[in-house]
Design a protein around this nucleic acid. Structure first.
Lengths: 325, 325
DNA sequence: CTGAAAGCGCTTACAG
DNA sequence: CTGAAAGCGCTTACAG
């Protein structure tokens, strides 16, 4: 079932079939309709591979993330990443593209086996070799997270420092005077988050109370939460998603009531509706990255582009856990 | 930078380049090495599109789910689905394939623009038209969840009824006599789950205490949790993931201590380490579905195949919330 | 052991 | 308004 069969059945040339089906050329509507009917009747589906080879466009976008650990997708940001991917997938489909998630590296050379119109690289390494390779091949790259010195066509990122300050300000407004920070040492944005916290503490002249842990180590988060509460904070900010249950558990074990004895706020998508949460809005990041990338792809050759940049707003959902009664 | 350039630079024919790079033909190692060196030096990357057109294999697997609501991916199973997709992606990559998530339907005909070697359909509708269309095009299909009367090459599924019974048995063993069930009416597997629960209650001669809610309606889960606890159960089983916080909140508001006054178990991946959870092991489902699919693709024409089937085991993680002190 | 040639199934100038 | 022909970049019989 190729275009030749349709042409034969419709009594026209393959050029006419192609034009009729793609809405191109100058054909009378009668021809167009006739060809479409015949194609439908035969159940003709154009070959995506042939179209891709001929046009040089596959309609496929890549999405990858530099995995710090060997884990597939970092544990500390699983929900964040999953939501980003979900949103990027949906946005790509809206724009007529499909999205394929690829590993930064893999045993098989999957990157070589897939024709990509563009790629989103989440949290690229500095001067990421993968990005350089893609650009050399003419594949546009947009990054999620600041690209550092890696040359990209655009990027999306949160203002991490401002985000941290907004949470700390909120806890302080709610009456906290000794705010502790729980952070995964190997988590994404941990550096910026901890730095922002320390700067805020310095500004206010209050002590920094931090505990860090290795997200990869089972039980490390739980232990760090316990250590942190033992240092007597009256509020705690959990910098990485999914730490709310561990902090709540640690509080319960110490008979600390939330929010009466301890205010609590966490990063994340707010799985627990009683815990104040700071969302990094991964859905926006994913959608915007795709929009930037598709813009680059479809405006190819529209002059020297400045790297496009969009700052993804964060959203603080204040819940019971940080509301003084 | 095509195969012709490499051939010219290496002083051989394109046949030899192709054979050398793909490890085919009978070439002396010296030729092979030489061609590879030249190709590397020129930074040659074979065109995936051309290879796909020529070989009829794209190395791409599709994954789709019938969305009951108009939501992208059902809310009641977001983490389940995300984990299934993550695992399917990783397994596909291990086997040399890439995976692309496609919607059951979309404004653009993305299905027609992507060449797929096979597709996984999660929770297909009965006699799913998409599956029929794919099979007509010669694209093998494996389903996640029982395919009903839809003809597929294989499927993976949990034994939902046995899974529900295992949780109820556990709660009964822990001393529960009035076990309530919280279920999303529009959730996946809700029918089987509720039926399994009622059958278990009938077997034991105990009353069925169920509350259902529409997952799409904000706050409905919270309200249903409250209604359920007001009916005085001494244990509760939450059939859909993510309901643990709502049940814990409802218990707290009623001054019911968990597990002292109320035993609690939930489906899901156990985000809260203090709550007993039944995992459906979506990672296994995703990995196995890909393995079945790749098996079908690579054994094409290996005789009349029975649909391959694998039952995905569930795993009950017993935590504090259902452990009587 | 190596190469010339056909052809995968389209789209797109171009000729009529 | 329509069609014959070229060609996208490979892989694969097949001939030498």
């Amino acid at each position: 079932m190729g275009i030749r069969d349709v042409a034969a059945a419709a009594g026209v040339s393959i050029t006419t079939v192609s034009d009729a089906l793609n809405g191109k050329g100058r054909l009378p509507d009668t021809t167009r309709v006739h060809v479409r009917e015949v194609a439908d009747r035969l159940g003709y589906r154009p070959s995506a591979a042939a179209r891709t080879l001929r046009t040089g466009r596959s309609g496929l976008l890549g999405l990858t993330t530099t995995m710090r650990s060997t884990e597939p997708f970092a544990l500390t940001e699983f929900a964040w990443f999953a939501e980003l991917v979900r949103s990027a997938t949906a946005t790509a489909l809206d724009l007529g593209y499909a999205l394929v998630v690829l590993p930064a590296s893999s045993p098989h050379d999957v990157w070589g086996n897939v024709a990509l119109d563009g790629t989103i690289v989440v949290d690229p390494a500095d001067d990421d070799p993968l990005v350089h390779e893609l650009l050399r091949r003419g594949v546009p790259v947009v990054s999620g997270g600041h690209p550092g010195s890696t040359p990209v066509y655009g990027w999306v990122d949160n203002d991490h420092v401002a985000a941290v300050r907004s949470v700390l300000d909120h806890l302080a407004d709610a009456g906290a005077e000794r705010i502790g920070l729980l952070a995964a040492a190997d988590g994404p944005g941990a550096d910026k988050g901890v730095a922002g916290y320390r700067a805020w503490c310095a500004d206010r002249g209050v002590p920094a109370i931090t505990e860090e842990y290795e997200a990869r180590t089972p039980g490390a988060g739980r232990a760090a939460a316990a250590r942190l509460l033992d240092r007597g904070p009256d509020a705690v900010f959990g910098l990485h998603e999914g730490c709310a249950p561990e902090l709540l558990d640690a509080a319960r074990e110490r008979a600390l009531r939330v929010p009466d004895d301890l205010l609590l706020a966490c990063c994340g998508e707010g799985a627990d509706p009683s815990v104040t949460s700071l969302s990094l809005q991964p859905a926006l990041a994913g959608a915007w990255a795709v929009e930037l990338l598709v813009g680059v792809i479809e405006d190819a050759g529209a002059g020297p582009l400045l790297p496009a940049q969009r700052t993804v707003p964060t959203r603080l959902s204040v819940r019971d856990s940080s509301t003084r009664r």
